[in-house]
Design a protein around this nucleic acid. Structure first.
Length: 673
RNA sequence: GCUGCUGUAGCUCAGUGGUAGAGCGCACCCUUGGUAAGGGUGAGGCCGGGAGUUCAAUCCUCCCCAGCAGCACCA
């Protein structure tokens, strides 16, 4: 007599099941409805196939499509497998590698057969069709445990060199599984999967693009073709997602930047921004705001050179570790050969001295710190700079305002003693939190730990990393996202670990803005010191920090975050006074003069156009307030305010309107209460 | 930098082996109209740059540049 398995269910009940039975059997025992709805199971908390037998007593929670997160993960993973199967079925000789679920779908990295070009967008319709065929065939997805050698033999026999390479590195003692799709195709996979391909909705996915991706993420390896898709549980979800993407595209800062006449980019200065009056207005407001914040927080602002002798960069270590991203300039008058009307051909003498344009401000700040003799009593010293830096970024990395070659940081370096580090980092974390909340952002904080290539001793790295963790633990952060501190091994700077603040753009990509880094390397390399209580020289710790990160990136994120509808205090034009008839022109001019006198950024629109047209145009321009005046308003001394995003107008006296606008135009740090 | 795609008027985009078109915007005229497109007329383009094939190239081929998506990179 075999002993029955005790399967506990979420409602607290316990079912006794025959050994070898599966979560599917439990579902069937409970009722036919559930048997049909159950797509997978959580067994002792682990997501598993519905048909994978229990290995003993267990806690079971059946997963249905109502458990959206699990269901989506499973479906996307299955879509990825179906994608791989479809590609191999259509194009024999294609090698498959990996294909995980993503935030909105799935991808699979494949290597096209040698006699074929890499896959392109044109191939996607055929592949989609083949995927639908596989889904409709309702092929069972069956789990099987294989030995490592079995896997290696199979992949090698089939010429799957990537899979074989991977299989060889799998641990010997772990249970290795494959999943069959029907009887004719399989992939090595940890699972879990749905019971069959037919559980997928053939109308709930769409292949979206192809792109190159390196095998195992290393650019020294062959490049594969990554086929991306978006995958959902049903067509409705898919369509909703596609609509969301369209909406997100509308708030792309590059598009809005042009439409709102904020800035432009052009090839002759690619990667550098031409700021237009309206865009630079936003910049100036941000800069004024940040200056007030930093002044109050005990920073002192400085300005340091754009160009320094290359020898200085050698000493700081940048020339060795960072030269490929630096712009170098010969310190000489170039010989210019005139070729008639053709291009001038400057040539550089072989013995020219070289200068480099600063890619960061830190070495210059150390040089400022080193002037004179500093006592421990003076510490901490916080030196701030709106520092314009140039970095020669890989061209494929450039992206609107988000990743540029010339940018200005709200940079500062805090020189302090060992004992002051945690306290200073804490103060910074709270300052950053205030700033992000003033803009309505939530954020994620990550801790980037020591990279492979680095300066400094392991003991110093241990200390520096722990200080950042300690500071986070004692800090008061309110505007944060999920509240967990994610640690990123190997991602720190060559001189210091970094705390990083990440914000999200319109389509969900995250961008680092703020950072603070605890550096013991640069003060040492550049021989910075202070005189301690004991009269001896000591090395200060140097904290590198920024909150906006760069004005360029921060403005890009602001534009996307607000879809161009910036808060009044940041809006380049805060109000437009628009007339209905020309008889109201004089009154409109008076209103504009009074608004200007109150410090409001206001423009007038006296054109001979219908009010409908003016409303439409200024709404498109995302002007927060439109003050409409006609004969009625002129007589009564009122304005009809139409606020962006609202359908209703409010009529109020001009005085009242000025007071309202003035309050809204006040930057958040200057508001009372 | 790598893979793929794209580059035509200020913007969004059609189009053709015989040097070009629309809508919006812009200018001018008419219209003074109460909250998201009033009407008319007109100007505007070395079809990203270079080389090649061709009687002829915006169109085909090659190289370069830039942009887009992803990868890699982001001190």
């Amino acid at each position: 007599m075999t002993e029955l398995l005790k399967i506990s269910l979420p409602d607290g009940s316990v079912r006794e099941m025959e050994p070898g039975s599966t979560p599917g059997d439990v579902a069937a025992a409970i009722g036919p409805g559930l048997a049909k709805a159950a797509i997978a199971a959580r067994v002792d908390g682990e997501l598993r196939d519905i048909n994978r037998p229990f290995e003993g007593d267990a806690e079971l929670a059946l997963v249905t499509s109502r458990d959206e997160e699990d269901a989506l993960e499973l479906a996307r993973h299955d879509f990825a497998h179906v994608l791989a199967e479809a590609v191999q079925s259509l194009y024999p000789g294609t090698q498959i590698t990996f294909g995980p679920a993503t935030d909105d779908g799935f991808y699979y990295d494949v290597k096209a057969p040698a006699d074929r070009e890499p896959f392109s967008m044109d191939d996607l319709p055929d592949i989609e069709e083949e995927m639908r065929r596989i889904i409709k065939a309702d092929k069972p997805l069956r789990r099987e445990v294989w030995s490592r050698q079995q896997l290696i033999d199979k992949w090698e026999a089939e010429g799957e060199i990537f899979k074989a390479e991977w299989a060889k590195e799998l641990p010997e003692n772990e249970e290795l599984t494959v999943y069959w799709s029907g009887e004719d195709w399989l992939d090595m996979c940890r699972g879990p999967h749905l019971a069959s391909t037919g559980k997928l909705d053939p109308q709930a996915f769409k292949l979206t693009r192809v792109a190159g991706a390196y095998w195992r993420g290393d650019q020294n390896n062959p490049q594969l073709t990554r086929i991306y898709g978006t995958g959902w549980l049903n067509k409705k979800q898919l369509n909703a997602h596609l609509t969301r993407l369209e909406e997100a595209a509308k708030r792309d800062h590059r598009k809005l930047g042009r439409e709102m006449d904020l800035f432009h980019l052009q090839e002759e200065a690619h990667g550098s921004v031409f700021w237009h009056p309206k865009g630079y207005r936003i910049w100036r407001e941000l800069e004024a705001y940040m200056r007030r914040k930093m002044d109050k927080a005990g920073y002192r602002e400085i300005k340091t050179p754009q160009l320094m002798d290359v020898r200085q960069w050698e000493q700081s270590g940048h020339w060795g570790k960072y030269a490929e991203n630096m712009f170098a300039v010969p310190d000489m008058v170039p010989e210019v050969e005139e070729l008639g009307d053709g291009p001038a051909n400057p040539s550089v003498a072989p013995d020219a001295d070289w200068m480099a344009i600063k890619p960061m401000n830190c070495p210059a700040h150390v040089l400022v710190f080193k002037q004179g003799i500093t006592s421990y009593r003076d510490l901490p010293i916080r030196l701030g700079e709106m520092g314009c830096c140039h970095r020669n970024e890989p061209h494929g990395a450039l992206h609107g305002l988000m990743r540029v070659r010339q940018f200005t940081q709200d940079d500062a370096h805090i020189f302090c003693t060992e004992n002051q580090v945690v306290e200073e980092v804490k103060a910074f974390i709270e300052l950053a939190d205030q700033v992000y909340r003033d803009f309505g952002f939530t954020y994620d904080v990550k801790l980037a730990l020591r990279p492979e290539k680095r300066f400094g001793s392991d003991e110093d790295w241990d200390t520096a990393e722990q200080e950042l963790r300690d500071a986070v633990a004692v800090s008061d952060m309110q505007g944060e996202g999920d509240g967990k501190l994610e640690e990123l091994p190997g991602e720190g700077a060559f001189y210091a670990p970094k705390l990083e603040w990440h914000l999200t753009d319109a389509i969900g990509r995250t961008w680092q803005v703020g950072t603070i880094q605890g550096d013991r390397v640069l003060p040492d390399r550049l021989d910075a010191s202070y005189v301690g209580e004991d009269g001896e020289k000591h090395r200060p710790v140097m904290l590198h920090r920024a909150i906006f990160g760069s004005y360029e990136r921060f403005i890009g994120i602001l534009i996307e975050h607000f879809a161009g509808r910036l808060p009044v205090w940041l809006a380049p034009v805060q109000a437009v006074v628009a007339t209905i008839v020309s008889d109201a022109d004089d009154y409109a001019k008076e209103a504009v003069a009074r608004l200007e006198a109150a410090g409001i950024r206001v423009e007038s629109d006296l054109r001979n156009e219908k009010i409908n047209y003016k409303v439409r145009e200024h709404s498109h321009a995302k002007v927060p307030h439109l003050l409409v005046v006609g004969n009625r308003e002129a007589e009564e001394g009122t304005v009809a305010i139409r606020t962006l995003g609202e359908k209703e107008q409010r009529v109020m006296s001009l005085d009242e309107a000025i007071a309202t606008l003035k309050a809204e135009a006040t930057p958040p740090d200057l508001r009372e209460g």
